[in-house]
Design a protein around this nucleic acid. Structure first.
Lengths: 346, 346
DNA sequence: CCGACGTCATAGAGCGCTCTCCCATAGTGC
DNA sequence: GCACTATGGGAGAGCGCTCTATGACGTCGG
């Protein structure tokens, strides 16, 4: 209280033992006499001692912190950058990632350090921060397929785990979804309910998840006798979903089923369809992807392909933790299975 | 490269100077001969040196990190807790806060450390982490009026700045919005456009922002000859907006104007109105609060009271930074003015 | 030619913790 | 009773950095 915070030394003096013993008690090392342990406990209580993180990190070389890096692709800057962070968090997807990561970290008294890397400069900064030991490792969520960050991290030998398989192979662990399977489920569901004029609104094709979903969708459609599928590219936003649907409707007014690569775009599509007097699902069936909370909330509730984002993010954090503890050395990938959630829109 | 990372010592040897000189160059202290400075720069380059954060923190007593604490009220636990983080990030509001905070921190090479404090235990943990020096200070976003965290932080003498005025006075700086003024604008706009049967959907009344908005709305309505205003309490979610609107409609079918305390609930209200065959804004005018991105995206685009969340969050970060640097010592509050954004819904 | 002074660099003392020895004490077997 | 092993506490050497006090080396006025 008198100016500076109590240190181990203070507690040791108070308890009448050595610094080392106090350290042992604090760190739960069992080879300490119960009586002494208790005495130390009380001394800690009395002094209001809290171990100094920096000092501990200095010697353990661990910070008990992991960086959660939201990584864009190219060289965004200024106003556009702001748009980046805004857009990132407008999508409920990232909230779910954060939730999952926190779920894993919290019980282990670890915290995520939030970083954005959406330009060469900020990417370098993130890399630097990591090299300086701001965090023990990184969890990377890329918004673009050719994100250079994973390779940079791997080259620098920094422990990192990715959300989604990198476009070029990188010796890092990652979690991902079987996007093709998800798209297949969507296609089959639309076909099974009798749709015959089926179109798709893809995500930005610079994202490999978008490509996989498109590929999976097309494959299934082709196999089921629909080699040609009208495609409109969206940007994973509500607005882009509206725009894509408008375009689709203009060129293919007879459309009776739509697979959108995420829920936000599916909602945008529903919006446009409603405005044009089409009933969902009676005139046009719409199916989304993600199973975000909005999918259940919106009208009609969205039939969608569930992606267990929170779970995936938790596993991502677990993989990193295992790498950090040395419990895992080889890059590993964990692929999750999607699940079709049938509600009212299709 | 050979095992351990290069240290100041290594760079010093490489450059043929002392550790202290390298330190000076790294920290940009001007009293260094340009030639030597350059020599050191090159040595840093060659060795690939990155200063060790922990060692630096240990002596400077600064981490260049601030905690961003999302703080709930009571004793949430287990499943409910998960719901907490999920709900928190489902609301675009928090994304905007993060954006604003990051905008301020990033140019200063600082990062936010994400923490959740939604139970007595996690609150204690956050407090402990702060006392241990995990972060230099805290930015607190409370989701509930009687959040005990601000007082705990103040008592512990930890630097902190709040988003929103605490319900009981606490000697901490905060940023807030003139909620009453915002609600007044909403009321006046509805009245001016001719609405006469006006109701309001409030936020959870445990949140002081909700109470202020309600109070401001009622005051203005009363002053303009409408002493009685139908009120339904919502929970800031889309669903709760729907529920509240349903209730309102059941009891007051003649309603022709609605003020919802946030955009999400306004959207929910629109949804219900549309389902009941009321046109927005022709039959019922709806006005929201926040001006979230969805307000512009949804149909009809929402007339709403703009809350400059990003800016507020930036200023919150700036206030904390000033406190940390000692540039500001007294608790300060910065109140932002809301702004009416007229679109189509009212 | 000498002392005073400014300019920079160096030496070295920590910051608060962990962790490896090492030693004291006490128990064990023969 | 003696060597021998547990068992548990203490001493002290760092971890890599910052920063103060100190000193080397001109330069310049007198």
């Amino acid at each position: 209280m008198n100016g500076r915070a109590p240190t181990l030394e203070d507690v040791a003096r108070e308890a009448g033992v050595s610094r080392a013993t106090v350290s042992r008690v604090i760190n739960g090392i069992p080879t300490v006499d119960p009586a002494i342990r208790e005495a130390v406990r009380q001394a800690v209580e009395r002094t209001g001692y809290a171990p100094n993180r920096a000092a501990r990190s200095l010697v353990t070389r661990r910070t008990e912190t992991v960086a959660l890096i939201v990584s864009g692709a190219g060289d965004v800057s200024g106003e556009e950058r702001n748009a980046f962070t805004t857009k990132v968090f407008a999508d409920p997807f990232f909230g779910r990632v954060v939730t999952g990561v926190v779920d894993y970290l919290r019980p282990r008294s670890m915290h995520p350090l939030l970083m954005f890397a959406d330009s060469a400069q900020t990417r370098q900064q993130a890399l630097n921060d990591l090299r300086q030991g701001s965090a023990d490792g990184a969890l990377v969520v890329s918004t673009h397929a050719d994100d250079p960050l994973p390779a940079l991290l791997a080259d620098a030998g920094l422990p990192a785990v990715l959300f989604a398989r990198p476009s070029r192979p990188v010796p890092l662990s990652y979690v991902d979804l079987a996007h093709r399977d998800g798209a297949r489920m969507a296609a089959e569901h639309l076909l099974d309910r009798g749709c015959r004029r089926i179109a798709t609104v893809t995500g930005p094709l610079g994202v490999s998840a978008s490509q996989d979903r498109l590929a999976g969708f097309r494959d299934t459609m082709a196999r089921r006798g629909h080699p040609y599928v009208p495609v409109a590219e969206g940007g994973f936003t509500f607005d882009s979903g509206m725009a894509a649907m408008s375009g689709l409707l203009a060129e293919h007014p007879e459309v009776d089923g739509v697979f959108a690569a995420n829920d936000l775009m599916a909602q945008g599509a529903c919006q446009v369809l409603r405005e044009r007097g089409r009933r969902v699902p009676d005139d046009v069936a719409v199916i989304g992807f993600d199973d975000s909370s909005a999918a259940r909330a919106c009208r009609p509730p969205l039939t969608t392909v569930r992606q267990p984002v929170e779970e995936m993010a938790s596993v991502m954090a677990r993989l990193l933790d295992e790498h950090l503890r040395g419990a895992r050395t080889e890059p590993t990938s964990v692929i999750f299975d999607p699940e079709l959630v049938v509600r009212e829109s299709a």
